[in-house]
């Protein structure tokens, strides 16, 4: 493809990234660096602030309704702190799966792929994309949550009882390293598309068209990184290496969720997440 076509593809995916994801890297960066002019997130660092923060989240659901989301978190049943945090996290995750799906559909050529292959690409790619999407929301001290309205500290998450305390720590470790790459919104958009279009997922029937699409996105990503980050010639290679780390991270995450399902009597996994994680690794 001509470089003009590749640039057009980058622009298109970046637009789609802004359209489908409520908290982009640039927005998260502004919040985390305190550049939002008096609109800083509510900090959750202990049980007391968690209780206050939950009320705070409920009070600020308006932007969600404005985006015509019909699904709101269910009324919080009384229960253990850890399970309550987990319920909120998985509700947001299910919403994020929908956002990633809409993003995938906007990748040129994706919806023309075999329908079962589209399902497999999403099933395997969605948690990798979501984990990567989490990185800009994090710094070494904590993570943004609830569309950037909440900042939950890493120490608080680590203080939850086992195995809940083990859930976020590997994501922080990944995020701190990933954020060093200093990608911008358009780089992120292309990287997500590369992850989704992985032709080596188990069970794919028609691999060739997937690989062809990925090849084009990879060319666009390489060109873009060379143009935007000329001072870092290794960036493209470094970014591709992250895909290996992501697979391991997701495999560990899924193992942990399966363990939780066995151990926690009260835990109920969201049907969409259940569907994705069943027989995945």
């Amino acid at each position: 493809p001509e470089s003009a076509d590749l640039r057009a593809l980058s622009r298109q995916l970046c637009l789609s990234y802004h359209r489908h994801f409520p908290l982009t890297k640039s927005k998260a960066k502004a919040i985390l660096s305190g550049k939002t002019h008096g609109n800083s997130p509510f900090v959750i660092h202990d049980m007391k602030s968690l209780t206050a923060g939950q009320y705070f989240i409920n009070c600020r659901q308006l932007p969600v309704l404005e985006r015509q989301r019909s699904v709101l978190p269910p009324e919080e049943p009384a229960g253990e702190l850890e399970l309550s945090v987990f319920r909120r996290l998985q509700f947001r995750s299910a919403e994020a799966v929908q956002e990633v799906t809409e993003f995938a559909k906007s990748i040129p050529g994706f919806t023309e792929l075999d329908m079962n292959d589209q399902v497999i690409l999403l099933k395997y790619g969605v948690i990798e994309v979501m984990t990567t999407m989490l990185a800009p929301l994090m710094n070494k001290d904590g993570t943004l949550f609830a569309y950037g309205q909440i900042f939950m500290t890493r120490e608080f998450l680590k203080s939850l009882r086992k195995p809940f305390c083990e859930m976020m720590e590997p994501k922080f470790e990944f995020a701190v390293k990933f954020n060093v790459l200093e990608l911008d919104d358009s780089d992120m958009a292309l990287f997500f598309a590369v992850i989704i279009l992985s032709g080596d997922r188990p069970g794919l029937v028609n691999v060739k068209p997937i690989e062809d699409l990925q090849e084009t996105v990879l060319l666009a990503l390489e060109l873009q990184l060379k143009t935007i980050h000329p001072d870092c010639p290794q960036l493209f290679a470094k970014l591709l290496q992250k895909m290996t780390d992501l697979r391991q991270l997701v495999a560990d995450h899924v193992r942990l969720i399966h363990l939780l399902k066995k151990q926690e009597v009260q835990m109920c996994l969201h049907p969409l997440l259940q569907e994705i994680m069943r027989d995945l690794y």
Partner: peptide, 20 residues
Amino acid sequence: KEKHKILHRLLQNSTSPVDL
């Protein structure tokens, strides 16, 4: 297809919100 019916629905239906 039955095993991934919500994903199928998400992929096929772009406008109406999916009842989860």
